[in-house]
Simulated assay, not measured.
Amino acid sequence: MDISPYSVPAEPVVFEEEIKKSRFITYLAHTSGQEQAKAFVDNIKKKHADARHNCWGFVAGRPENSMLWGFSDDGEPSGTAGKPILAQLTGSNVGEITAVVTRYYGGIRLGTGGLVKAYGGGVQKALSLLITNERAIVVQMQFSCEYSHIALIENILSSHNAVQVNAEFSHNILITVEVDARVSDLVADEIFSRTRGQVVVSKLQ
């Protein structure tokens, strides 16, 4: 599993331009997964049901994971819309992103080269306006410890920005946390060594 972080959109972007009397509106949004991506596409299609075309592309996971890419020309000549849109998205190294380009036809044909330039260019310009956040890969870890160790463990977890998901209290304490995958081994080793192996550590994913 690749545990390096990647960029995702922080907020939506809308970019509009007119090319030879055709109106192109490019929408970018953060969509985590294929279902969200398709739902976003459907929403834009409903919003612009009167448009000639609503072409789209998405990267539904890590930027380099081609298994989670998708695109559609939505009636434009094959290869003139969906592929240029997707090419701009994959070239941006941003993950979990969907682009929909709505076209209101203005009566002047752009030709295949003109369409590629219009669709790809709209996404390129929209991407130049995009603000991103870092998406860290997290793993869930579980610690089984005695009550006497809880203060030490919480201190270690806090120093590594771990987020507590659950805690169960019985004869001992079972703590479930989410932690950045890049430091998960370090956290486990530190807790193991500072409690002299008295805390049971396990990764849940």
Results as ranks from 00 to 15, higher is better:
residue 185 D to Y: 07
residue 56 W to R: 07
residue 22 S to H: 10
residue 86 L to V: 08
residue 109 R to N: 13
residue 201 V to Y: 08
residue 161 N to V: 01
residue 180 D to Q: 07
residue 93 N to T: 05
residue 175 I to C: 00
residue 110 L to Y: 11
residue 8 V to G: 04
residue 109 R to Y: 02
residue 192 F to V: 00
residue 120 G to F: 09
residue 174 L to A: 06
residue 147 Y to C: 02
residue 80 T to Y: 01
residue 65 N to G: 01
residue 102 T to C: 07
residue 98 T to G: 04
residue 156 I to Y: 08
residue 141 M to Q: 14
residue 164 Q to R: 12
residue 28 L to D: 06
residue 83 K to N: 09
residue 188 A to R: 12
residue 198 Q to G: 00
residue 129 L to S: 09
residue 64 E to D: 15
residue 79 G to N: 07
residue 41 V to G: 05
residue 70 G to K: 10
residue 76 E to I: 03
residue 22 S to F: 10
residue 165 V to K: 13
residue 82 G to D: 11
residue 26 T to V: 12
residue 153 I to R: 10
residue 155 N to S: 15
residue 3 I to H: 08
residue 59 V to P: 07
residue 63 P to W: 06
residue 128 S to D: 13
residue 191 I to C: 03
residue 36 Q to A: 15
residue 149 H to C: 00
residue 111 G to N: 09
residue 188 A to V: 08
residue 131 I to E: 12
residue 23 R to D: 05
residue 10 A to K: 14
residue 6 Y to E: 04
residue 149 H to S: 13
residue 84 P to R: 07
residue 124 Q to P: 00
residue 11 E to A: 15
residue 148 S to Y: 08
residue 30 H to Y: 12
residue 145 C to I: 01
residue 22 S to R: 12
residue 182 R to T: 13
residue 127 L to G: 03
residue 168 E to T: 12
residue 58 F to H: 12
residue 17 E to M: 00
residue 203 K to P: 00
residue 174 L to D: 12
residue 172 N to A: 09
residue 143 F to D: 06
residue 146 E to R: 08
residue 79 G to T: 07
residue 44 I to V: 15
residue 12 P to D: 05
residue 106 G to Q: 03
residue 125 K to V: 01
residue 192 F to N: 15
residue 12 P to M: 06
residue 37 A to R: 12
residue 122 G to C: 10
residue 90 T to E: 10
residue 73 D to G: 03
residue 129 L to G: 00
residue 103 R to L: 08
residue 14 V to I: 15
residue 185 D to F: 02
residue 137 I to Q: 13
residue 179 V to L: 09
residue 34 Q to K: 14
residue 45 K to H: 02
residue 54 N to K: 03
residue 91 G to Q: 10
residue 66 S to A: 14
residue 74 D to H: 12
residue 176 T to Y: 01
residue 131 I to Y: 04
residue 98 T to C: 11
residue 101 V to S: 04
residue 146 E to L: 13
residue 69 W to Q: 01
residue 92 S to C: 08
residue 3 I to G: 01
residue 129 L to P: 00
residue 65 N to Q: 10
residue 163 V to P: 00
residue 91 G to N: 11
residue 109 R to Q: 14
residue 89 L to P: 05
residue 79 G to W: 09
residue 16 E to I: 01
residue 135 R to V: 02
